[in-house]
Each structure stands twice: as C-alpha cells, then as structure tokens.
C-alpha cells in the first residue's frame, strides 16, 4: 500500500498531528490508524516530538463551570433535572429504528456466551440485570449493554474499532416518538459501568442506538450518524 511507504507515512503523520490534514484525507488517515499499528506509532512519535511546543503556552485557570459541566456529562452529579431540561431535539427517529430484528435474534446467544458472568468489582450481581441489548455488525457482536437498577454496564468486544477522531454514543429511542435520550459514550474497549441519569424503566423504549459523534459526544443533544440500532430485551 502506497500510504505505508515510510517517508510518505512520516509526512502524513506529521500533517495529522499538526492539524493541517483535513476533510476526507483526515478521515482516510484515521482509518489507516485504526488498521495499522505502524501508522499509530508514527503518529504517537510526532505527538511526542511536538508536545514540547505546548511548553510555550501559558496555563490559564478555566472557569469553575467547566468542571461542573464535565461532572454533569459523565454522571458524577445527579443530572435528572438537567437531563430533562437538555432533552435532545427529535431527529429522524423513524428513519433509524428499523432493522434491529436481526440483532435481537442474536441477542440471547451472545448473552449466554458472556465471558464474565460473575460480579465485577463494585459492579452489579448478574441476577439483578433487568434489561439487555447487543449491538452487532455483520453478525459480529460489538457491544453488550446491560441495565440493572439505575446502573448501566457496557462491554465492548474486540470487533469495536477504537478511534481518536470519533466517539460512539448510546441513545434510547422512546416508543412515543419523542426525542432520543443520550445514555452517554460507549467504551471503545473494555467495560464501563455508570449510573444512569434517566430511568430506563419509566420510558417505553422502542429501540437503543449507537451514533458516531465527534470526540466527547454529541454537541447538539441530538444523535449524529446512527450506526447501529437494536431492541432492548427485558429479562
């Protein structure tokens, strides 16, 4: 592959790290990073070479509200009230709720094959799991999602492609056609557990979905490009 010629790769990695690479070229390069360790390592090398340039930038105290907002977005503080106020705008819900039957068929099999059926440290006993969903692509499971009480656990499989340029965000699509509600970012590997700011038991859920977002998640409150949709099975 042309891209992987050493000299060319080095120049592209430098362009990427500098930020001068943009648009389609940047997206193509991110895909190469996902696919090849050699490309990632070259990017990391440039990041380290250029990082001392930040030494010339003066530190500035960010306003207190920045930490408050970070805490709210990752669920450190009770955001039930805020979540209601920030309800995302409806965006083509009907367009992306179709086609989750196949995933639902796969659900039980994947659930039964879970590698870690025991209690995670500080986690929820499996017997309490009440809702479960699996996202798949080409019959390959990507994420297993479980809800126990107000705790959400999501396990990423090795089939998930990590990305520095995008994040994956989880949404519930209410049955009544109202706007999708974000349940936060999906892990790109490993497993995360967090407290839900919304009570998924009080909402009639038509589907759950994963969207592709800029790093940090949706900035509009509505999902971006919806990649995967599946049903939420009540156990």
């Amino acid at each position: 592959m042309n891209y992987l010629n050493d000299e060319r790769l080095d120049a592209l990695a430098a362009d990427y790290v500098m930020g001068t690479m943009q648009g389609q070229a940047r997206r193509r390069f991110v895909r190469l990073m996902q696919a090849y360790q050699k490309v990632r390592e070259r990017v990391w090398h440039w990041e380290q070479l250029l990082a001392p340039m930040n030494g010339r930038i003066e530190a500035q105290q960010p306003p207190e509200r920045v930490w408050q907002e970070i805490s709210r977005r990752i669920g450190f503080i009770d955001t039930t009230q805020n979540a209601a106020n920030d309800e995302p705008q409806s965006k083509g819900v009907m367009a992306w709720t179709g086609g989750f039957a196949t995933a639902a068929v796969l659900l039980i099999g994947v659930f039964l094959m879970r590698p870690e059926p025991t209690v995670a440290p500080g986690g929820i006993p499996e017997t309490m799991i009440e809702q479960v969903a699996v996202f798949t692509q080409d019959e390959q499971p990507l994420w297993l999602m479980e809800v126990a009480g107000n705790e959400l656990t999501v396990q990423a499989t090795n089939a998930v492609q990590p990305s520095d340029e995008h994040d994956y965000e989880l949404w519930i699509v209410p049955e009544d056609g109202s706007a999708p509600v974000s349940l936060g970012l999906m892990p790109e590997d490993g497993r995360i557990t967090r407290t839900l700011a919304v009570n998924t038991h009080d909402i009639a859920i038509k589907a759950v979905a994963v969207s592709l977002e800029a790093p940090g998640g949706s900035v509009t409150g509505a999902p971006g490009e919806v990649l995967y949709v599946t049903g939420l099975t009540i156990l």
């Binding site: 990391w44 990082a51 907002e69 590997d189």
Partner: peptide, 20 residues
C-alpha cells in the same frame, strides 16, 4: 476542554507509555 475531559474519563484505559 469539556469534551476532551469527557473523552479522557472514558478512555483513560487506552493510555500506555508508548503514547508519551
């Protein structure tokens, strides 16, 4: 900064010393 720290929280496990 907010969005970056949300990402840092979710991706802290990705950090390794090969990243500098």
């Amino acid at each position: 900064l907010q969005e970056a720290f949300v990402k840092i929280w979710h991706n802290a496990g990705d950090y390794h010393q090969g990243r500098g």
